[in-house]
């Protein structure tokens, strides 16, 4: 049986836990109660995916590794997530910004990420790594819902009022360049492809482009023209935002190692 390299499992897990943490920042602050619950559900799905992947990786790594040591006791440079998912829930702040949380940014990010993950999980549910395939099959259903939820809002924002359109387009312009990272495999991804346990994400690009094009057309939003800089979060080279996110996420576990409640 070919098994996926642990670094690849951590890449998938780190994406999920970091985005889960970002989305969770809305908990109790959602634009309306119903949406607050909806986004918290997305967040809990992502954290659930991360737990399964960390548990699998911990079993394979051995040496006392647990899901908690992997999530709470690795530093930012050891995290293998896309830079996209660690960015704050806002773009460049302007003087009239009413808050440092912008729902368009959160929604557009969830859209770009879940459009990729429905394809990745769909491919991985056929992986010869049976444990990973099982996690992928479960995660696929959740990712489909996340995509549906986010795409609905992208259309409502884009094809909504003048302000909602402008904010959705601004979020898209801000975030789209970070999707370049999807298409440049890291060493962990190359190893996963070579093991036969994972699909080359580059083969999913046309399908991702089609999902994005369909939704943006309906939303009357313009796909930004992107070229140049490719972020390297999955190589462990992150933006300045990840260490603050981890500071908040890991602080309690590090202050009280091994605590239970």
């Amino acid at each position: 049986m070919s098994t996926a390299p642990n670094d690849y499992l951590l890449h998938l897990a780190d994406n999920a836990v970091v985005l889960g943490q970002r989305d969770a920042e809305w908990c109790g602050h959602g634009p309306i109660l119903e949406e607050d619950l909806a986004l918290a559900n997305v967040s809990l799905d992502l954290i659930g995916q991360a737990r399964l992947l960390y548990q699998l990786a911990a079993t394979r790594i051995g040496n006392g590794a647990t899901e908690d040591t992997l999530a709470y006791f690795r530093d930012d440079t050891e995290f293998r997530n896309y830079t996209l998912v660690e960015l704050p829930n806002h773009g460049a702040l302007v003087g009239y910004a009413a808050s440092d949380r912008d729902y368009a940014t959160t929604i557009v990010r969830n859209f770009l990420y879940s459009a990729l993950m429905v394809l990745v999980w769909d491919a991985l549910q056929k992986s010869p790594d049976a444990d990973l395939a099982a996690i992928a099959a479960k995660s696929l259903k959740e990712a489909r819902y996340h995509l549906h939820h986010a795409a609905d809002w992208v259309v409502k924002f884009g094809d909504g009022t003048e302000e909602s359109h402008a904010r959705a387009q601004a979020a898209l312009d801000h975030l789209f360049p970070y999707t370049e990272e999807f298409w440049t495999p890291s060493a962990a991804e190359d190893a996963a492809i070579a093991s036969g346990a994972a699909t080359d994400v580059r083969t999913l690009r046309a399908a991702w482009d089609a999902i994005v094009a369909d939704t943006l057309a309906e939303a009357t939003l313009k796909r930004p023209d992107v070229r140049g800089y490719v972020p390297e979060g999955k190589h462990g080279r992150h933006s300045e935002h990840l260490s603050y996110l981890l500071g908040e996420m890991q602080g309690l576990a590090r202050a009280h190692p091994g605590a239970t409640w």
């Binding site: 309306i32 119903e34 949406e35 619950l37 559900n41 609905d152 409502k156």
Partner: peptide, 20 residues
């Protein structure tokens, strides 16, 4: 009951609010 912009969104929100 819940608030939603349209029927499709109401279904989604009902899923999140009442079938968790």
């Amino acid at each position: 009951s819940l608030h939603a912009a349209d029927a499709a969104q109401a279904l989604h929100m009902a899923r999140d609010v009442y079938t968790r």
